[in-house]
Every structure is written in structure tokens, then in C-alpha cells.
């Protein structure tokens, strides 16, 4: 197991997980909500990367039919499905970011701060 961790062919996974952790770090540790949203997008991006890197095949080309290659041999083209998934997931991610940002705008207009601790304090104040 330890061998596989450092095996060179695994480097994409290591990089992707590192990116994912960067995103999660931003989401958990930062107090500023905008930074949390940035962390969220980084986190989502790492997932897209995981899909995309899995679509590659050694020696294959992009999944657009090349008349010279024909369509019989699947090893000549990369896997189109993960790319489709990423396209969809990406839009979902953008949508989430959009809603998050509009909430941020609302919050900033209303409270003049994006500090999470401060916002939570004000929320509790208003509730009681």
C-alpha cells in the first residue's frame, strides 16, 4: 500500500486530492464567507479533474470522429462519458456558485460584513 502511494503513475490522484484538500481547507478554516465560496469552487474543480483525468487513454485522441481512424477501435479515442459528466457537473457547480454569490451580495448589503462568526452572532441576536 505504501508503495502505491508514491508510485509515479499515481501522481494525478495525489495532485487531485491535494487540490481537493486545498478547497476543503478554505471551506473549513476560513472565516470569510467569500473565501469559503472560493474554497467550494476549488473543491468542485478537483472533482471535475478527477473525472477528466480518468477519461484519458494512452495513445488516444479526442473523442471526435476522425474519418482517418474510423470508429471501430475504441482505444483510439478517449472516453467521452466522463467529459459529458464534467460538462453537466460543471454547470451545476456554476449554478451553486451563482446562488452562493447572490446570497453573499444580499448578506453584504444587509450586514456590511462577510465574517461568518459576526454574521452568526447577529443572526442569534435577531432571533432572540
Amino acid at each position: 500500500m505504501t508503495v502505491e502511494f508514491i508510485e509515479i503513475a499515481r501522481y494525478p490522484y495525489i495532485l487531485i486530492v491535494a487540490l481537493l484538500l486545498v478547497g476543503l481547507y478554505g471551506m473549513t478554516v476560513k472565516r470569510n464567507l467569500l473565501k469559503k465560496v472560493i474554497g467550494m469552487t476549488i473543491f468542485q474543480t478537483s472533482i471535475y479533474l478527477l473525472f477528466i483525468q480518468g477519461a484519458t487513454k494512452q495513445g488516444a485522441t479526442i473523442p471526435v470522429l476522425d474519418p482517418a481512424l474510423g470508429n471501430e477501435d475504441p482505444t483510439l479515442y478517449m472516453n467521452p462519458l466522463p467529459q459529458v459528466i464534467v460538462l453537466t457537473a460543471l454547470v451545476v457547480g456554476v449554478a451553486i456558485t451563482a446562488v452562493a454569490l447572490s446570497l453573499l451580495v444580499l448578506l453584504y448589503r444587509r450586514y456590511g460584513t462577510l465574517d461568518e462568526v459576526e454574521l452568526l452572532r447577529r443572526m442569534k441576536e435577531q432571533a432572540s
Binding site: Y11, G54, T56, Q58, G59, P74, T75, N79
Partner: peptide, 16 residues
């Protein structure tokens, strides 16, 4: 990820 296919493996389940 240790049990995921190698990068670019044409024999991986996803590719086949």
C-alpha cells in the same frame, strides 16, 4: 485511489 486504474490505462473498466 490505489485500486483505481492507472492514468491512461486503455484496459480500465471505464474505458472498456
Amino acid at each position: 485511489s490505489g485500486d483505481l486504474p492507472q492514468r491512461g490505462d486503455p484496459e480500465s473498466p471505464a474505458s472498456t
